[in-house]
Design a protein around this nucleic acid. Sequence first.
DNA 1: GGCTAGAATGAGACTCATTCTCATTTAGAA
DNA 2: TTCTAAATGAGAATGAGTCTCATTCTAGCC
Lengths: 132, 132
Amino acid sequence: MKPRRNTWQREAVRAALVGAHGFVSAQQLHQTLRDSGSTIGLATVYRALASLTEDGEADSIQAPEGENLFMSCGSTGHHHHLICRSCGAARELDATVVEEWASKVGAEHGFAEIEHVIDLFGICAACRAKEA
Amino acid sequence: MKPRRNTWQREAVRAALVGAHGFVSAQQLHQTLRDSGSTIGLATVYRALASLTEDGEADSIQAPEGENLFMSCGSTGHHHHLICRSCGAARELDATVVEEWASKVGAEHGFAEIEHVIDLFGICAACRAKEA
DNA sequence: GGCTAGAATGAGACTCATTCTCATTTAGAA
DNA sequence: TTCTAAATGAGAATGAGTCTCATTCTAGCC
Ligand SMILES: [Zn+2]
Ligand SMILES: [Zn+2]
Ligand SMILES: [Zn+2]
Ligand SMILES: [Zn+2]
């Protein structure tokens, strides 16, 4: 892990990410921080999120609309999520079966350096209750 | 399927997509078409790809970099791919196990309207040979 | 074949997420 | 405290994709 300086900006992003409880975009996070009086710059939020993700402190996924979403995730290892399209709440999934499937399939077709993207999106119970 | 008029532009996009043999971006496709003398507009390429995808004549995926990629795909039903990061070549996958896993997991967590994104990326044998 | 309504097109303006530039600030070691 | 490279922030730049709207063209009708 490359060296990082501890700036209040980096810490603020980390805190905001933890406070978000679910996947959020860089823009949302920046807005939240500004709304709470911070003067942090948008570019800095992007930089902090990139480094946090690099260091394994945050997970990132691509929303179906193309935006990148980030989340402060407890477990550090490789894993997958079930995400609420409406509020961003996420559940970690035990994906042992698909991990095995993915590596088997990759090998079978003679492809190297296999990576996989596996995400489930839906509407959580809470959001459904709200809408009804 | 909503009605579509047959224009040479739509046909050109369809043909270029078939000729591409793998996943390509709208921009690439547009460039290819222009290079071969066509005067087709970029917006039209986007519109044609969107309608072809809607009609099930093309598949689309999100590249890890965020760009949307399209491919003329034989089978019409729901399925997944193993894609070469380098040349876009793709294999269709039998993903019965993961389909079952996905629907089970969604239900278990009380989420509704589950959709899943499952894509494998790697480097195909041909591209590895080329690089070496 | 001509006529017409409405769909499709294309040039370019526009949006919006993300990255880059660069002058200024600051963390952290000495 | 001093110094230096890393980090920051404002705004410019990038780039995929969408939108607008005047013009063109398809397809059905005579
Ligand atoms: Zn929700
Ligand atoms: Zn995995
Ligand atoms: Zn390849
Ligand atoms: Zn599937």
